[in-house]
């Protein structure tokens, strides 16, 4: 579906995407995980054929995005990072009007619009304009709009950023259904739980480069330990404990507010901390996540 080698995007002398390689297979749910400014949107826009690569090779659905942009876009569904729904049209018209851009006949456009509004649970809002909708509703409408041409490949740029937990879960559930139908999904996110929920495979991006690549499980197993212990020590700076706790677990990462201790066996590590005579004010043993992978790979947290 997507093939990229040495893909580069520069804005003036600033390099936003710095030579990435990608391959996405049909039916896959593929994710770009990375902090703000990592180059996720720039990559998505090149894949969506609305931005020309500065260098490198890119093929989408076996075609060249520069020469065959319209033919590729006819088979893509795009949900951009910021909604660009049409405020002058109703919810229903947003879909039917968009259908016309793809050359879908009126009656067929109306049929699909009704079906998609049902799918994203917006049927009651059909006659409303876009402005009064909540953020989650707008996002769902954007996704419905992206599906109007029954695309082979759906691009979702930060589908749930800024939504409350309930709205996010509803969206995830809808996206999961799309995935079950065999639609190829490519999404970006800076939420590790989103990546874990939705992606079969993902790349971790930082400063325009891919720093790791694999399934969420694979990434965690490769770069992190099975469990992570989060320790907080009253008023003392976590960094001062790095030396004192050296040798426990496989790795220690001091954050401003807590110390992360990576270990295959979290409880055993906690016992060792106590045995050395330290009493943290709070102890949390949890399974390792992609957030930890990101921290280990880049030395920084995903969301600050």
């Amino acid at each position: 579906m997507i093939y990229a080698r040495g893909l580069v995007k520069r804005f003036g002398d600033f390099t936003a995407v710095d030579g990435i390689d990608l391959e996405v297979a049909p039916g896959e749910a593929f994710g770009f995980l990375g902090p703000n400014g990592a180059g996720k949107s720039s990559t998505m826009r090149m894949i969506g054929c609305v931005s020309t690569p500065t260098a490198g090779e890119l093929r989408i659905l076996g075609m060249d995005p520069v020469r065959e942009g319209p033919a590729i876009r006819a088979r893509l569904g795009v949900c951009p990072q910021t909604d660009n729904l049409d405020p002058d049209l109703t919810v229903f018209e947003n879909l039917t009007t968009y259908a016309r851009y793809f050359g879908i006949p009126r009656a067929e456009g109306r049929r699909r619009a009704a079906e998609l509004l049902e799918f994203v649970q917006l049927t009651e809002k059909s006659g409303s304009t876009v402005d009064p909708l909540s953020g989650g509703m707008k996002r769902r409408l954007s996704i419905a709009r992206a599906m109007i041409n029954e695309p082979d490949l759906v691009l979702l740029d930060e589908p749930t950023t800024g939504l409350d937990p309930q709205a996010r879960h509803l969206l995830w559930e809808r996206l999961f259904r799309l995935k079950q139908r065999g639609v190829t999904l490519v999404l970006t996110t800076h939420y590790m739980d989103e990546a874990e929920q939705l992606c079969d495979r993902l790349v971790v991006m930082d400063a325009g480069k891919i720093v790791a690549d694999g399934s969420p499980r694979h990434l965690i197993e490769t770069y992190s330990t099975r469990e992570v212990v989060e320790l907080r020590f009253g008023d003392d700076a976590p960094a001062t404990y790095v030396e004192k706790l050296a040798g426990i677990g496989e790795r220690l990462d001091p954050l401003p507010d807590r110390l992360l201790l990576y270990s295959a066996d979290g409880d055993a590590a906690v016992n060792e901390v106590h045995r050395r005579g330290f009493t943290p004010s709070s102890v949390l043993v949890r399974r390792s996540t992609l957030e930890d992978v990101f921290l280990i790979l880049t030395g920084r947290t995903l969301v600050d």
Partner: peptide, 14 residues
């Protein structure tokens, strides 16, 4: 502001 043309350019429209 309303990015109507960004939305259009993501479709086969030239």
């Amino acid at each position: 502001y309303v990015k109507t043309y960004d939305a259009m350019l993501a479709t086969p429209l030239r």
